[in-house]
């Protein structure tokens, strides 16, 4: 998988204050440690967008990277802050895989956030479940499955979370229309006699 540079802009990337400089440096140190530990086909690339460092990780090695980040005595990224997804189907000028999973972790030891991105192809929207490493990933993964249709392998209970169980689409995908695909019209109607 190649590195995807969909964010063409260079605006707003230089730190504005000494504190922002310090935070960005801490993130770069984490990246350096990741690159020392893992070969090039795991840490696919990195870029600074809006004064934050975003790291691309190969899907196959995701769990290994998460586990390393959590357990390494110098890193100790114990806190899973965020797990979400974005669909780049209609992003202007975007080349490459359609979905990007985003993992944000925080470490008290390094006082740093790490933002990992895992790119997924449209015809193979599967990713390993992070629940084995962070128990808190269970619900966010269910939500991503519900709204984007990404299948998390090894998830203990991968069901829809926000939408009804019998819903068919994945509403946050960019090719899903705002007003739905007629699901509203086919809602079962309860009459007064039945209720």
């Amino acid at each position: 998988m190649s590195v995807h540079r969909n964010e063409a802009s260079t605006a707003g990337q230089a730190p504005r204050t000494p504190a922002e400089q310090r935070w960005l440096e801490a993130e770069h140190q984490v990246l350096a440690r990741l690159e020392r530990r893992f070969p090039q086909d795991v840490v696919l690339g990195s870029r600074v967008v809006t004064r934050k460092l975003w790291i691309d990780i190969a899907r196959e090695a995701l769990l290994e990277v998460l586990r390393f980040l959590r357990d390494d005595p110098e890193l100790r990224f114990e806190m899973l802050i965020e797990l979400t997804c974005a669909d780049f189907l209609k992003y202007p000028g975007h080349q490459g895989p359609r979905f990007a999973l985003l993992y944000i972790l925080y470490s008290f030891r390094c006082d740093a956030y790490v933002r990992l991105k895992v790119w997924l192809e449209e015809d193979d929207p599967r990713a390993p479940s992070a629940t084995a490493v962070f128990a808190g990933a269970e619900w966010p993964e269910r939500e991503v499955y519900d709204l984007y249709g990404i299948v998390f392998e090894g998830h203990p209970d991968l069901r829809r979370l926000l939408m009804p169980d019998d819903f068919t689409g994945h509403p946050l995908r960019k090719d899903y229309p705002l007003r739905g695909r007629g699901e509203r019209d086919s809602f079962p109607v309860l009459t007064r006699e039945e209720s």
Binding site: E7, A8, E82, T84
Partner: peptide, 24 residues
């Protein structure tokens, strides 16, 4: 400008973060 950000904020319930992507 085109780009993305994740900005965290301490709201009463906890950390509310906004992950925004702009295409310009």
């Amino acid at each position: 400008p085109a780009g993305e950000t994740y900005c965290a904020n301490e709201v009463p319930t906890g950390e509310q973060g906004y992950y925004l992507i702009s295409d310009g």
